[in-house]
Design a binder for these strands. Structure first.
Length: 270
DNA sequence: CGCTGACCCTGACGGC
DNA sequence: TGCCGTCAGGGTCAGC
């Protein structure tokens, strides 16, 4: 489910309900997601105040004084805030974190590609190899240009590689490349400095727009069916195979790149 | 080192 | 109605 905008929307949705609250207990209903969930999580978190909810890439970080809980939503994961009366857990509700004021943070993930991990030092190995945040100023055209020289991987794979830049998922990779007028199959090393300028701007723009859209539905977040609404946003090419290109009316094409659906306009993108 | 493809898992959907 | 194949927005890892 989540691309970066949805993770950020989730962070903003849950943070005001749980920041400053103390954990009363943790319920684990499954011992493994992508990786094993620490089985001592209840002992680790019990009576600990949650200081802050932050995000790095698509990882949510629940910060405590003695470490942080790292949560990744994978393809199908989600977090919900529940208030009394707490509904019975469904089939894929794997973890509940119950706070002393009665609020529950519930993690669900049908496909179980997500993870819930603990890090003592706040410097988990999953985070150490990550590239810059796309919305940071350190992420710019020069950075991408320098990094991409002599790289033969296609540009879509290049921007989706979290070592290069984090948070650009399959939907927004197609969208940003369309906006920048770059064919997804172009070798990263062949993309000019000027075109990286455009691409960098496009990545920032699509993600910012999507986060803004997600923000509009934050009020629904504590509902039982609360889903961030970024999915409703206007997508220019993703999922629009055969439909007219918004710029030139040419039919949108679909191809598979690195096992992922890729949408583009063969006329606007070169 | 860089790149490609296999893989993890369940559910939704379309065709027959 | 049910069965089967296909596909899905995440990421890691082995192997070439």
């Amino acid at each position: 489910m989540p691309e970066l905008p949805e993770v950020e929307t989730t962070r903003r949705g849950i943070a005001p309900h749980i920041e400053g609250q103390t954990v009363q207990r943790v319920i684990l209903r499954r011992d493994t997601l992508r990786w094993p969930i620490p089985d001592n999580l209840d002992r680790l978190l019990r009576n600990q105040p949650l200081q802050q909810v932050t995000r790095r890439a698509k990882y949510l970080q629940l910060q405590f004084a003695h470490g942080m809980l790292l949560i990744h939503l994978g393809m199908s994961g989600g977090l919900r805030i529940l208030h009394s009366p707490i509904p019975a857990p469904g089939k894929h509700d794997h973890v509940d974190i119950i706070f002393s004021n009665g609020t529950v943070l519930r993690f669900h993930d049908p496909r179980r590609f997500g993870c819930v991990l603990w890090s003592d030092d706040g410097n988990h190995s999953l985070l150490t190899e990550l590239g810059p945040e796309p919305l940071d100023d350190t992420f710019d055209a020069q950075y991408l240009f320098d990094l991409s020289r002599k790289k033969t991987v296609n540009i879509k794979g290049f921007i989706m590689n979290s070592r290069n830049v984090v948070g650009v998922g399959n939907i927004y990779a197609s969208e940003a490349l369309f906006m920048a007028g770059i064919l997804p199959t172009t070798a990263a090393g062949d993309v000019s400095r000027a075109r990286f300028e455009k691409l960098c701007q496009s990545i920032k723009l699509v993600l910012t727009r999507a986060i803004d859209q997600g923000g509009t539905t934050l009020k629904d977040f504590s509902n039982s069916d609360g889903k961030p609404g970024y999915f409703a946003q206007q997508l220019q090419v993703y999922g629009r195979e055969g439909l007219p290109c918004p710029k030139c009316a040419n039919a949108i094409s679909k191809s598979i790149l690195a096992q992922r659906a890729t949408y583009y306009c063969g006329r606007c993108q070169r």
